[in-house]
Design a protein around this nucleic acid. Structure first.
Length: 292
RNA sequence: GGCGCUUUGGCCGAGCAGUUAGGCAGAGGUCUGCAAAACCUCGUAGAUGGGUGCAACUCCCAUAGGUGCCU
């Protein structure tokens, strides 16, 4: 207990992680009000402008209650990377702390979270032209280049993206840094059955709230290949617009895709042994309050 | 009632008398500038009962379900 106390007054940052539809955002708002915090969204989808309900972006009401950062940073046709996010979020964190408040980093994008939590040193930025060329090569050809250049082969050697990245940065970036100091990281993971239901409920709610209009706008304005269009929602409803599939069918797909996403997110987040997990929002809230 | 077709793993769906596709869903996993992405691993099923074969999911017969046309 004594030790807990010494840690307590030093905590300066809070991370909240978890799968989609776990209730992270709502928890974050409650917590922020309790510990005088501001929220930084670590979410690779809500950085895009114009896509609000389809990305489950915090609402205007949410934002009026607690300041939110990390939203509406780029247009749907612009690419945004974990390194971009890290740089942005770090300046937010510094600013929030300078004002005497607690930054609360909330998100489901594991790489964005880890980049910050472990202070990743990202390699060089992508070279768009070179990447385009490399993308046309086969796995075998990419592996040949890697072996020619005597670079380390990525563990995931059947994944073109990792192969290309290895060539780009001349090897595999594996330097492990210690977690950042004075941070608490908690995870919210509702029971799988409950989560499945929440995912489905949210899928229908999005439709009611006009998510399809956003999809139509996105496809018409930026095309199907825009970076923002790579999320489950847009992938699932593409057949509705371009192949005359029924909405019901697409919604079924959307729910499945989000369930699969939730699973991957859980797999990712479980690796961080520093994370204190909660099934219930209230428990998580109480714990956080006891720590700050 | 008559004639014909069909029946494959949770779902879809091939080939083949003997080395037993594939896809989807599901489970597990990877992850350091595309990450709500991309990728990896995991499934011996053949409606039921007989029969013919050294050998049948593959051929034959019967039964049951489905389906089509006819009366």
């Amino acid at each position: 207990m004594d030790q807990l106390k010494t840690i307590n007054y030093k905590l300066k940052t809070l991370f909240i992680v978890g799968p989609t539809a776990s209730g992270k955002s709502a928890l974050a708002i409650e917590v922020a009000k309790s510990i005088n915090g501001e929220i930084i969204c670590a979410d690779s989808r809500t950085v895009y402008t114009g896509l609000d309900v389809s990305t489950a972006k915090p609402t205007a009401t949410d934002r009026a209650e607690v300041p939110h950062w990390g939203l509406d940073l780029v247009k749907p046709d612009q690419s945004y990377s974990a390194a971009d996010f890290k740089e942005y979020a770090q300046s937010c964190i510094a600013d929030i702390q300078k004002r005497g408040k607690i930054p609360i980093i909330v998100g489901g994008t594991g790489l964005y979270i880890d980049g910050l939590f472990y202070d990743f040193k990202f390699g060089p930025a992508k070279d768009t032209a070179q990447r385009k060329k490399l993308e046309e090569l086969s796995i075998e050809q990419l592996l040949a280049i890697i072996s020619d250049k005597k670079l380390e082969t990525p563990e995931n050697s059947k994944n073109k993206r990792y192969l290309i990245r290895a060539i780009e940065q001349g090897g595999v970036n594996k330097q492990k840094n210690a977690p950042i100091k004075d941070a608490l990281i908690i995870g919210l993971a509702p029971d799988r059955k409950i989560l499945t239901k929440r995912i489905a409920d949210r899928a229908y709610k999005m439709l009611e709230d006009g998510a399809l209009k956003e999809a139509e706008w996105l496809f018409n304005t930026y095309g199907q290949e825009a970076p923002a269009a790579s999320s489950p929602f847009f992938k699932s409803y593409k057949p509705y617009f371009f192949e005359a599939k029924s909405i019901e069918e697409c919604t079924g797909q959307d729910i499945i895709k989000n369930r699969q996403l939730a699973k991957r997110q859980l797999t990712w987040f479980k690796r961080n042994s520093n994370t204190k997990w909660f099934e219930d929002t209230k428990d998580a809230h109480n714990f956080v309050i006891s720590q700050f």
